[in-house]
Computed example of a mutant assay.
Amino acid sequence: MAPVSTKKRALTGLLSAAAASVALVAAPTASAVSSADVGVQAVNLRTPFDCGQVWNANTRTNHNPQNAVDFQRGDALGKNVRSSAAGTVETVRNLGNRSYGKYIVVRHAEGWKTLYAHLNSFNVSVGQSVSTGTVIGKVGSTGGSTGPHLHYEQIRNGVVQRAVLNGVAIRYFGNTTITSSTGC
């Protein structure tokens, strides 16, 4: 019996150490998904960029709408924007030099939609079915934008929610460094 007990203690120790390592890595940039985010877990919204790209997800109290996320990086212009989940393209619109500029809305399951704004170009049309990771457009600086970035919203039943990507809640209000795992 002693060998089994020793193995259990060793395994428990390893699991505890691994959990502590994961907590240390995740703690500075993001928080775990709460039970209030169960719906977003079911849809599993992903980071809207190519696999391995690192982006700064910026949130701030004066953003409109407040729970929107601005994704930024030094070479953002022209980067692929990918659908966060499977769905149907609901809106492809160009507001010119105001507001969102060129933007897309994708309708997902369970009352979820995602909005992608300030795009440079569109790769989809209204009514088109998309998969998780389908390239829907390119990052731009259209509309009321002051520089290349992606304005991103997760909307549930008409209300913009705090973003959860890849099962990780984006930090409000501040910055979260996030690496895209979409299409990996």
Results as ranks from 00 to 15, higher is better:
Thr88Gly: 01
Ser121Cys: 10
Val106Glu: 01
Gly174Pro: 06
Ala85Trp: 00
Asn64Asp: 12
Gly140Ser: 11
Phe122Val: 08
Ser125Val: 15
Thr6Lys: 13
Gly147Pro: 01
Val92Arg: 00
Ile136Leu: 09
Val33Asn: 02
Gly13Met: 04
His149Gly: 02
Val38Gln: 10
Ala57Asn: 01
Arg156Met: 15
Phe173Ser: 11
Arg9Ile: 08
Ser84Thr: 13
Ala169Pro: 01
Val33Phe: 02
Gly143Leu: 06
Glu90Gln: 15
Ser181Gly: 04
Gln154Lys: 05
Asp70Asn: 04
Ala32Gln: 12
Arg162Ala: 07
Lys138Trp: 03
Ser31Lys: 10
Leu165Tyr: 05
Ala86Leu: 06
Ser35Gln: 07
Leu15Pro: 04
Gly13Val: 04
Ala109Leu: 12
Gly96Thr: 09
Pro65Glu: 08
His149Ser: 04
Val33Cys: 03
Ala36Pro: 00
Leu165Gly: 00
Ile155Asn: 06
Gly52Tyr: 09
Ser125Met: 14
Val25Ile: 15
His149Arg: 13
Ser83Cys: 04
Gly87Glu: 01
Val4Ser: 06
Phe122His: 09
Ser145Met: 09
Gln154Glu: 14
Ser34Trp: 10
Ser121Arg: 15
Arg9Trp: 14
His151Cys: 03
Trp55Thr: 02
Gly147Cys: 11
Ala42Lys: 14
Gly74Pro: 07
Tyr103Ser: 04
Arg98Lys: 13
Ala32Val: 12
Phe71Gly: 00
Asn62Lys: 10
Leu77Thr: 02
Ala169Leu: 08
Gly87His: 02
Ala18Cys: 07
Gln161Pro: 03
Ser180Met: 03
Leu11Glu: 11
Gly137Cys: 03
Met1Thr: 13
Gly167Trp: 02
Cys51Glu: 13
Glu153Tyr: 05
Gly133Leu: 01
Asn157Arg: 13
Leu115Ala: 10
Ser145Lys: 04
Val54His: 06
Phe49Met: 08
Val126Gly: 04
Asn64Phe: 11
Ala86Tyr: 04
Gly52Asp: 10
Ala19Ile: 12
Tyr172Cys: 01
Leu24Pro: 00
Asn123Tyr: 12
Leu95Phe: 09
Trp112Gly: 00
Val54Glu: 08
Gln154Phe: 04
Glu110Phe: 10
Gln41Arg: 08
Asn64His: 11
Val139Gly: 05
Glu90Ile: 05
Asn94Gly: 09
Gly74Tyr: 15
Val33Tyr: 02
Tyr172Gly: 01
Ile170Glu: 04
Gly96Asp: 11
Met1Leu: 10
